[in-house]
Write a protein that binds this DNA or RNA. Structure first.
Length: 277
DNA sequence: CAGGTCACCTGAGCGC
DNA sequence: TGCGCTCAGGTGACCT
């Protein structure tokens, strides 16, 4: 489901709800969510008695800082967290329940079961997969033109694919890549090697600006995304191209078209984002 | 190294 | 109503 702004919204919401809570035990209904330790039963034992001290985010990953461990969680397409009372009825798509000593429960809900959880000893999370594979996210200091420019201009890949690559920049997904490229007036199929420095600068600026605005709006709600307090994001009102096929471009009035780029649905304004430039 | 395909899962929407 | 197909905010494995 979520890209950086949605994950950041979840992070901020959960921070208000579970910091200081102690895990009494957990119930895992779909063990494949738990990627490390290998055995989900060990995972379940290790988190007993741990306290939620704070919650960080790197790219699209949530990092729950516990007493002795860091829980790294990725929501993939449809993962959601919610805090419930222990007598609230359990939805069939809840796969992991953290029973808290207060009687509250932190529940992980994921219709498609694609999400992942990794547990690391404190201080180890950033040193190992998956987090050590990530490039800087746009709110980190390492996100600079000097770092990104050669990564892009030396690549024969389509710029859309480069921006979706979490090893180069962490946090962008299908929605925000389409929005970023529209705002930067760059066609998604342009090869990295064809982009000029001003174009790359525009992409970097627009990516950060788009994510910043989306965070301010609480993320984008399409289909099912709801944050941990049941609130929906508002950024979908500000989308220029994603999901806007056949609607008039907000800049020039030409209809937005939908195409495929490496099998991902891709939305562009053919007038604002010409391919031959 | 890059690109394509499939796999992981379930549900919504659409044509027939 | 039901069937079959496509699509979905992501990523990793495996193959050319």
């Amino acid at each position: 489901m979520p890209e950086l702004p949605e994950v950041e919204t979840v992070r901020k919401t959960l921070e208000q709800l579970i910091i200081g809570e102690t895990i009494e035990r957990i119930t895992v209904y779909w063990p494949k969510i738990i990627k490390s330790p290998d055995d989900y039963r060990l995972f379940s034992e290790l988190v007993i008695g741990e306290v939620f001290h704070n919650i960080q985010r790197k790219g699209k990953f949530l990092m729950f800082e516990l007493t002795n461990y860091t829980l790294v969680s990725h929501l993939r397409m449809e993962g959601k967290y919610g805090v419930y009372s222990d007598d609230d009825p359990l939805d069939k798509h809840v796969h992991v329940v953290f029973h808290l000593e207060s009687g509250k429960q932190l529940r992980y809900h994921d219709v498609r079961k694609f999400g992942t959880m990794h547990l690391f000893e404190k201080g180890q999370a950033l040193e190992q997969k998956p987090l050590n594979q990530l490039g800087p996210d746009p709110f980190e200091g390492a996100y600079t033109l000097e770092y990104v420019l050669p990564k892009i201009t030396k690549s024969e890949r389509a710029i859309k694919n480069i921006l979706l690559d979490q090893q180069i920049i962490a946090g962008l997904g299908n929605i925000y890549v389409d929005e970023t490229l529209f705002r930067a007036k760059v066609h998604p199929l342009r090869k990295g090697t064809t982009l000029t420095e001003p174009e790359v600068m525009a992409i970097l600026d627009e990516a950060k600006q788009t994510l910043l605005e989306a965070v301010e709006q609480g993320g984008t709600t399409i289909r099912s995304y709801v944050n941990s307090q049941g609130k929906i994001g508002m950024f979908q009102q500000r989308l220029f191209v994603y999901g806007q096929e056949n609607k008039a471009c907000k800049r020039c009035g030409h209809p937005i078209t939908k195409m495929k780029v490496s099998n991902r649905g891709t939305h562009i304004c053919e007038v604002c984002q010409p391919l031959n430039s």
